[in-house]
Design a protein around this nucleic acid. Structure first.
Lengths: 113, 113
DNA sequence: CAGGATCCCCGGCGATACTG
DNA sequence: CAGTATCGCCGGGGATCCTG
C-alpha cells in the first residue's frame, strides 16, 4: 500500500502474475466464469465453440493449480463437474470488468469512426 | 450502458479486444507505458531485458496499428523515437491498475502461506 | 459426461547479423 | 539509435480417437 510506484519494480511482480493469464484461452474462460458463474465442462465447451476439449481441460487444470479456478465434482452416475472461480480468482473481477469496459469503448470507436 | 449482461454477448466483443493484448509481451510493454510514460526504444529494451529487438518492435508495431500505442518520431541526427499510449490506450489504465492490485494480492498470498 | 492419449502442424518467438 | 532481414526451434495449440 505504501509502496513507491516504479514501473520496473511493479512490472517485476506483474510479469509473474501475467504468466498465469498467458495463453490464448485463459482470459476467455475467466470471462465466462465471471460473476461467480458455475459452469459445467460441456457448458464451457458450448460457450466457447472455437476451443477444443484438450485446450479447455488443459487451461482449466493450469488455472486450477494456479489457484484461480476451482473444480467442484458431484459424484453422480452421469459425472458432473462444475468450474468456478476461487476467492483469489474473484479478485480478478475488477480487472475483468475494466477490460470489459475497454472492449466496449472499442465497439463505440469502430461504429463512430 | 443499458446493455443486458450475458456472458456470451459480452465474451463475443471481449474476445476481439483480447486479441489485441495477446502475446507474451504486449501487457508487459503496456505496463511500462502505463501512466503516460514516454519511453524511447532503447529505454524499453533496458526496461525489459528479456525481450529481443525483433519482438519489441513487432509488438509495438502491432499495438500501434491497433491504435493502442503511438509512435513519436523526433527528426534528429541521432534518431530518437518515443512510444506512449494513445487516448484509447490510456483507457486501459483502470484495467492495468486492477491487474496490478491483483498481482499484489498474489505476493501477499505467497508470503502469508 | 468428462476427460485422457497421441500425433502433428504451424507460427510465435529467439538469436544473430546487418543497415540508414 | 532505431530499426530490418533471415533462419530455425520448439512448444502451444488443433484434430482425432479412446476410456471410466
Amino acid at each position: 500500500m505504501g509502496k513507491a510506484w516504479t514501473p520496473t519494480s511493479a512490472a517485476d511482480g506483474v510479469e509473474q502474475a501475467l504468466k498465469i493469464l498467458e495463453g490464448k484461452w485463459k482470459l476467455v474462460i475467466l470471462f465466462h466464469l465471471f460473476g461467480g458463474n458455475l459452469l459445467r465442462f460441456s457448458e464451457l465447451e458450448r460457450a466457447i465453440p472455437a476451443i477444443t476439449q484438450k485446450m479447455l481441460i488443459q487451461q482449466l487444470r493450469q488455472m486450477e493449480s494456479d489457484g484461480v479456478v476451482r473444480r467442484i465434482v458431484h459424484h453422480q452416475v452421469p459425472p458432473k463437474v462444475e468450474y468456478g472461480l476461487t476467492d483469489w480468482g474473484q479478485a480478478l473481477c475488477p480487472a475483468l470488468d475494466a477490460l470489459l469496459k475497454w472492449a466496449d469503448l472499442r465497439q463505440e470507436r469502430r461504429s463512430g469512426d
